[in-house]
Write a protein that binds this DNA or RNA. Structure first.
Lengths: 129, 129
DNA sequence: CTCTAATATTAGCATACGCTTATATGTTCC
DNA sequence: GGAACATATAAGCGTATGCTAATATTAGAG
């Protein structure tokens, strides 16, 4: 448990140090998460990748469909082919999709990361707020 | 191993209905996720909410710090007070933060949803790609 | 009841983002 | 070889987004 003993009282403050029993966090001391800048960046890349309608639905389709080729997603998503391709590329870049070539088309499948993530999202969706 | 026997030939297609034994997904048949539009919308709201640097770091700080007051986050995040307030409001709206008033300040704490989500993100971060 | 601190809210703006359209790459079939 | 298909990539643009700055609200102190 973290105890803080100092409060922000700058801005011409009058040294009011009424520090009585404060069990949990005190006011105006910087908090920190334990993450490095790189970790934050990685997480955000991930979150940004799933955080668009097209990409999220594409990912869900693929996760549901097992191994799916691009044209199937095109049929499902109602945006242009270019948009789909960009979406899949992005999801692949962050490790949410695997790509496999076969002849003139490409099959995408969701990775473990994606499955774990989607699983949690569904789980969390039904948590009462 | 998946073998495909049918390719997209619509675009003025000639009513080719070769619907034989199709084990997994075939090419160019629409795939579907099982989610309703509302569910997708809810998920995206969630993902959008965490998917910004400021909001994500704020959430991480709060999750790490237990119960945290706004000014603490201000000290940690290096954006304006207004931006922090907006970020916390948004996170609260989607059920990732709980708000508690005490005197003239507000304490925020992460909800179960948030904790589950962050946990999974960390878990997923270290999955080899 | 006024003054100030803590937070919320609003307006406005610069940037980032996702889409479409157009074009390039790669593959099969003839 | 070339035509047609499946996908990727690039340019360009309209919109959404997150920030700052300014203002409003709420609460405690005197």
């Amino acid at each position: 448990m973290l105890i803080l003993e100092f409060t922000k009282m700058d801005r011409g403050a009058t040294a009011e140090t009424g520090e009585e029993g404060r069990d949990s966090a005190a006011c105006c001391t910087a908090v920190e998460h334990g993450l490095s800048a790189d970790e934050v960046a990685a997480d955000l890349e991930l979150l940004d990748a799933v955080g668009s309608g097209t990409r999220y639905e594409a990912l869900q389709c693929i996760a549901a469909g097992g191994e799916v080729c691009v044209c199937e997603i095109e049929a499902a998503l109602d945006v242009s082919q270019g948009a789909i391709s960009q979406a899949l590329a992005r999801l692949t870049d962050v490790g949410l999709l695997d790509r496999r070539k076969e002849g003139r088309w490409r099959y995408y499948a969701s990775t473990d990361r994606a499955d774990r993530l989607l699983e949690t999202i569904e789980e969390v969706r039904s948590v009462d707020e």
